[in-house]
Write a protein that binds this DNA or RNA. Structure first.
Length: 511
RNA sequence: GGUCCCUUCGUCUAGGGGUUAGGACGCAAGAUUUUCAUUCUUGAAACAGGGGUUCGAUUCCCCUAGGGACUGCCA
């Protein structure tokens, strides 16, 4: 397949145009895993060559996201490195030089057509049910240094007429690329257009130029990116050829897209809002004040996010599903990346988090739960009790935040009683019988779940009561509902006084 | 429309010329349980269609269909 190079250097190259999308995070992850696997370098390059779409704070968001997920960057804007700067807006001069070089070599040309003119052409073509393309069939009809005579070109440039630099795509060249995930991919250059490489609007290169120049200069060995770039591959390959860099051209790997849970198309911000799952690693508030949920704020553990993302489009071929990041780095190979897009499954995402939550120690979870308790107005005096409670309920929740509804009754008396349970279990004989239960409990001097269970069970049997009814009624009066861990453990933890108080209150209120 | 990519249970996927087509999520049933969960067991659930090649195709090839991406002075 692909030859392994000695010094693997991969880059994650996002644009700071908004919050990093979960698909972008997965691209970062696969790059990171690949670098780790081969003992190579993981580089973060900021591709901010679109001044119009630049969003302030987006770069910080990217850094914070990768940090939260513990995807350590070897070289980047913050980390520095031998190939700095790593922010493309700071490499302007480099790109200009390389754009000019292409003109000199005859691989590119100046084009004076304005955006308005081009748009008009597109509309005109569309009206005739055709598609306009700036390519070998049209370029001689347009205003550029290929169609205009030399004097005219010089006059325009000298008088400051804005121009872009376009790649002169050669005709009828077959470009074969061996993609690491897709195998051989083939294109004919005659179907390709003359892409803008250098913009007049902001005097910055487009992605294509900046990307190829930087990947070359930064000695990138493998380009692992989303499938949306596959159609650009022949252009990129031709650029490497134009510069004479073909022998060091990186290997390409185009990752499948992450698709909507249901419906058509790739995962978008909207889907998350609609289905109630995050699409972004961190919560994000746009400049318009619109907030989108983040995995972090939704209570996902970073390890769980890494795990679930790794298995979206890749698997090790075994039945193992839970992996540490180190395990993933060991097991990861591009060859086992799938070709087809994967629908995102919010349900399974929650399951992953559940697995990680269960695996955490009680003290770890208790520490995470204390802030939730404080928020609910519970001040924690005894952390060991919280640890114990958390241990009792961690099997039944997916998120730390869900713990409260599973265990609030350990901390506060029920505020009401579930009517269905009242109807079903709060029989007429319950209130009087509860008095004998209270009496029995008050006599206990060994306040421990098993002992309590024995005493109460004996009482129930001795009085010929229905075990289920009494137990449910008791649970109702203590928790307000019909769910939760072992009842006698609850009784043990909340203590004698509180237990008696709650039973008396329920008896009073429900009679 | 054009170019390119993709196609195994509802979803994520394993597999790969001869298999009872495996696992996971979710779903259903049963067992356990004082409740709800957990846990355990079981179950329903897939090779898009049509042609080839072959003794044999879900697997290889072609076509069709469906899906996706791209088609910007965005990345």
């Amino acid at each position: 397949m692909y030859q392994q190079k000695n010094n693997v250097r991969v880059r994650f190259a996002p644009s700071p145009t908004g919050p990093l999308h979960i698909g972008g995070v997965r691209t970062a992850l696969f790059n990171y895993l690949f670098a780790k696997k081969h003992g190579g370098k993981f580089i973060l390059r900021i591709e901010d060559t679109d001044s119009a779409r630049f969003v302030s704070g987006a770069e910080e968001y990217i850094n914070e996201s990768l940090k939260w997920l513990d995807l350590t960057i070897d070289e980047g804007v913050v980390e520095g490195g031998a190939f700095a700067p790593y922010r493309q807006s700071q490499r302007k001069d480099i790109y200009k030089k390389y754009a000019d070089l292409l003109i000199e070599k005859g691989w590119a040309y100046y084009a004076f057509d304005t955006p308005d003119e081009l748009n008009a052409l597109r509309e005109q073509y569309e009206a005739e049910k055709k598609t306009f393309a700036y390519d070998n069939s049209t370029r001689l009809l347009l205003n550029n240094s290929l169609s205009l005579n030399n004097d005219e070109i010089q006059v325009r440039i000298a008088s400051g007429v804005p121009y872009v630099i376009r790649f002169k795509m050669p005709e009828n060249v077959t470009v074969n690329i061996n993609d690491m995930v897709r195998g051989e991919v083939s294109f004919n250059t005659s179907t390709l257009d003359d892409k803008v490489l250098y913009k007049s609007a902001d005097q910055l290169p487009t992605y294509h130029l900046a990307n190829i120049v930087d990947d070359h200069l930064m000695e990138i060995t493998h380009v692992i990116r989303g499938e949306e770039w596959l159609p650009s591959v022949p252009l990129h390959a031709m650029l490497y050829r134009a510069y004479g860099w073909e022998d060091t051209m990186p290997q390409f790997a185009h990752l499948p897209l992450i698709l909507k849970p249901n419906g058509k198309g790739k995962l978008s911000k909207r889907d998350g809002d609609k289905e109630g799952f995050p699409v972004f690693p961190l919560q994000y508030t746009s400049s318009e004040g619109e907030t989108s949920a983040g995995y972090r704020e939704s209570g996902y553990f970073p390890e769980a996010v890494i795990n679930l993302l790794a298995l979206l489009g890749w698997n090790p071929g075994t039945e193992q599903e839970i992996f540490t990041c180190d395990e993933l780095a060991n097991l990861f190979t591009i060859e086992r990346v799938n070709k087809s897009g994967a629908r995102f499954d919010p349900e399974k995402a929650r399951w992953f988090n559940h697995q990680y939550l269960k695996a955490k120690s009680n003290s770890e979870l208790a520490a995470l739960f204390v802030p939730v308790l404080n928020e609910k107005g519970v001040s924690v005096a005894d952390i060991s009790t919280v640890e114990r409670i958390v241990g009792l309920i961690k099997e039944r929740v997916n998120f730390v935040a869900e713990m409260w509804e599973q265990c609030h009754f350990f901390f506060v008396a029920p505020e009401g009683y579930d009517e269905k349970v009242v109807k079903k279990h709060w029989k007429e004989m319950i209130p009087p019988f509860m008095q004998t239960v209270v009496a029995t409990l008050q006599m206990q001097n060994h306040w421990e779940a098993n002992t309590l269970k024995t005493s109460v069970s004996e009482l129930i049997t001795a009085n010929g009561q229905s075990f289920g009814t009494v137990m449910n009624a008791l649970r109702l009066s203590l928790t307000g509902g019909s769910f939760g861990p072992d009842l006698f453990t609850i009784i043990e933890i909340i203590g004698k006084d509180e237990t008696v108080r709650r039973i008396n209150r329920a008896t009073g209120e429900l009679s």
